[in-house]
Amino acid sequence: MNNIRKNRIKDQAFKYWGIACTLLGLVLLAIFIGNILIDGIMRIDWDFIVNLPSRKAERSGIYTALMGSIWVLLLTTLIALPVGIAAAIYLEEYNKKNKLSTILEVNISNLAGVPSVIYGLLGLEVFVRIMEMGSSVLAGSFTLALLILPIVIVSTREALKAVPKSVRDASFAMGASKWQTVYHQLLPASFGGILTGVILALSRAVGETAPLIVIGALAYVPFAPSSAMDEFSVLPIQIFNWITRPQHGFVENAAAAIIILLLITFVMNGIAVYFRNKWQKKFK
């Protein structure tokens, strides 16, 4: 009897330990967000959004960095989306099980694990120097596009995989070709899933700092980019720059900019989760 009681106590103890661990991360995140809000919320006003960067902390704004982030995000989407979805379609729908498919699969899984700063080195050498794009929005977008490509491919494949085989059977049996089946049936049916993956990948891209620093994106840019070949900064680099400045005013700026960045990231994640839930219901 005694032994059984001891086991039950241990069981209960672990349960509370498990709850504590589960909440630990979230509590820390909450403390942290609270801290940031205290530091930065007062600093956010319209001027902060539309002002150009300045040497004086209280007159600085995030306008150029925000515009840079938007430019990079749009171009990254334009580059990564078609390539990533096309590659996923090939791997999931066209590729027979053979040597090439194994190589592609291992390779993509490896790429997903390459540290982002390494993509920066690749971008620096290939886009900035060899292709002579300089440290431009375009070079940064290509670099981030390669970085999120594995994520887009993997999530698109998952979404395609979730479309029941019976849909393919029905379409082929109606005399549809492979591409007609993909285009008319599979892509519309997996749209929600693909969208979820793409938004998550982009929310990753919008927070990336290191690879853009490596390709030479600047912390201080006097104007927002007006073309893809312009120099640029992005929100995370602006934040990094402010963090590393000793004057207290910049800490407030950093906190305020973090609030904006977190807002963008969380909203993107929220939208992604919304689409995922909505889409998952479709086949159940």
Binding site: S166, V167, A170, A173, M174, P188, K282, F283
Partner: peptide, 11 residues
Amino acid sequence: GMVFQKPNPFP
């Protein structure tokens, strides 16, 4: 034409 075991309308 073909009709399958489980009804499989397109979504």
